[in-house]
């Protein structure tokens, strides 16, 4: 990681949703930067605006204010410099594993030979060699998410954006896949922005953790994770790891309980 070279700069993002009944400010003046090869985790209570922020940074949703720049170039909509991995199941069921990964390469007009080589490389990287000709329906949820990750990486984005990529998986798969992603990230020195709601996941995978407040989503604090890599089982079991988790939970607790109260207030009164 080279902390001096800033790759992603997010500045003053504001996003409001105007509905017939009310105006919800989902993201409120959020700014941060991510350095070359760094993993920044964003954590926040459910409904705080994480996915909204993800969509604005990826260019899928237009922010009301603020700007996103990659290597100094201001983004205006979806851009090959930013690769996105979504929270929901997002493989194309009508394409084989190999053709899923080849999708962005076909669009870019890569020659068939080079396409096959790249697909092979990235499938090997995510540990899916031998599954090229399977269809997504024949794979487990964790394998499908790996296909989605390989598809995004195959396009060689400068910044990898992931929105709770493990949320739909069971815990064991989540831990294993977390390891895998970390290993890949190190191998490629991939600049990564990881959105999550798991504190342990954030501490395990990232260099810094950004804690968001409950609606409107603002930056509450940024915690440096000074744990050595690779993050072995030993490190995850260490006292320092526990201290980071406690520190972040401390920041997060008030926000999470705000979110809970808000949700309860919207329930029909029992009387």
């Amino acid at each position: 990681m080279n902390a001096n070279v800033e790759v992603l700069r997010v500045e003053n993002i504001v996003k409001r949703f105007v509905t017939a009944r009310e105006t919800v400010t989902a993201v409120h003046h959020v700014s941060f930067t991510v350095a070359q090869g760094e993993v920044l985790a964003i954590i926040g209570p459910s409904g705080c605006g994480k996915s909204t922020l993800f969509n604005v940074i990826g260019g899928l949703v237009k922010g009301d204010e603020g700007s996103v720049a990659v290597e100094g170039r201001t983004m205006s909509g979806p851009d090959p410099a930013i690769g996105m991995v979504f929270q929901e199941e997002s493989t194309f069921p009508w394409r084989t594993v190999a053709d899923n990964v080849a999708f962005p390469l076909e669009l870019a007009g890569l020659a068939k030979k080079e396409r096959i080589e790249r697909v092979h490389h990235y499938l090997q990287l995510v540990g899916l060699k031998g599954f090229e000709r399977h269809h997504p329906a024949q794979l487990s949820g964790g394998m499908r998410q790996r296909v989605a990750i390989a598809r995004t990486l195959a396009f060689a984005p400068k910044v990898l954006l992931m929105d709770e990529p493990f949320a739909a998986l069971d815990e064991q798969t989540r831990l294993l896949l977390g390891d895998k992603v970390l290993q890949i990230q190190q191998e490629l020195a991939q600049t990564t922005l990881l959105i999550t709601h798991s504190i342990a996941e954030a501490v395990q995978l990232s260099d810094r953790v950004l804690v968001m407040t409950y609606r409107p989503g603002r930056v509450k604090s940024i915690v440096d994770i000074k744990l050595p890599r690779p993050r072995t089982a030993e490190i995850i079991g260490s006292k320092e790891f526990g201290q980071y988790v406690a520190e972040i939970w401390n920041d997060l607790r008030d926000e999470a309980s705000l979110g809970m109260k808000d949700a309860e207030a919207h329930l029909p009164k029992a009387d």
Binding site: G58, G59, P78, P80, G83, M84, Q87, L107, F155
Partner: peptide, 14 residues
Amino acid sequence: TRKVLLDVGRSFSL
């Protein structure tokens, strides 16, 4: 068509 599949396409600038 699920929205997320279209989002994948849009993220690739289709």
